[in-house]
């Protein structure tokens, strides 16, 4: 299944340029203001044509707001608009987990060990046993991954600054570089997020 094609530009919905450092409280104000003009509740007595118009406009507005207010989906969306789509964190069927071969090179060893521990934990759970030291190890690993996610989110913000600056300067080459960096970062982020989920599943959390 392919992702939806970008018929509408969500940034344009809010009159924004394709830049990433967005003030979300201003975005919210804008969202409320537009909702007050477009929402189907305001067209309940209008003609069928106008009602359809309101429905289409409002769903586009809501889709745009939902996508842009979240830092990760906003970046994913921009990359898609810019012709460098990254698999979405939200959309993929959960059964379709990334292959181990896709583990970032610097994490291979860590992931290999983690998978062994996860397997052991699952076996334990199946047998109704609990190994406190294994549980402790996995909890520690989870904390560590969560820390890495937080670091990535910070790093993402510096990429945003670079992207916005490059767009302002019209520096095509630099935007390409930033795109690559953001693409790699989101890829890594998704991978780690899946690891956290696997750990949670195994811990029964």
């Amino acid at each position: 299944m392919q992702p939806a094609s970008a018929v509408h530009d969500y940034f344009a919905v809010f009159g924004l340029p394709r830049k990433l450092a967005i003030d979300t409280s201003a975005l919210e104000r804008s969202f409320y203001k537009l909702s007050r003009k477009l929402h189907p509740d305001l067209y309940a007595r209008a003609s069928a044509g106008e009602q359809q118009w309101s429905l289409d406009q409002t769903s586009l507005l809501n889709d745009a707001y939902r996508t842009l207010r979240n830092p990760v989906s906003r970046t994913e969306y921009l990359l898609k608009l810019e012709g460098k789509p990254v698999a979405s964190e939200e959309q993929a069927p959960q059964g379709d987990k990334p292959k181990d071969s896709r583990a970032p090179a610097d994490m291979l060893e860590e992931v290999f060990e983690l998978n062994m521990q996860l397997e052991e934990m699952r076996m334990n759970r199946k047998m109704g046993e609990d190994d406190p030291s294994l549980r402790g190890d996995l909890e520690k690993a989870r904390t560590q991954f969560e820390g890495q996610l937080a670091d990535l989110d910070e790093e993402l913000k510096t990429h945003w600054q670079q992207w916005d600056a490059a767009v302002d300067a019209g520096a095509t080459e630099r935007t390409e570089q930033v795109k690559d960096k953001m693409f790699a970062l989101l890829d890594r982020r998704r991978y780690i997020r899946n690891l956290v989920r696997d750990v949670n599943d195994a811990l029964g959390a």
Partner: peptide, 25 residues
């Protein structure tokens, strides 16, 4: 929507403000 192997591909997440839409090919 049901994808290969009987898994579900989520196209609109819960707690999305409505009206909400998704386009698939």
């Amino acid at each position: 929507i049901e994808a290969l192997g009987g898994v579900v591909a989520k196209i609109i997440q819960r707690n999305s403000t409505i009206p909400a839409s998704a386009t698939e090919h």
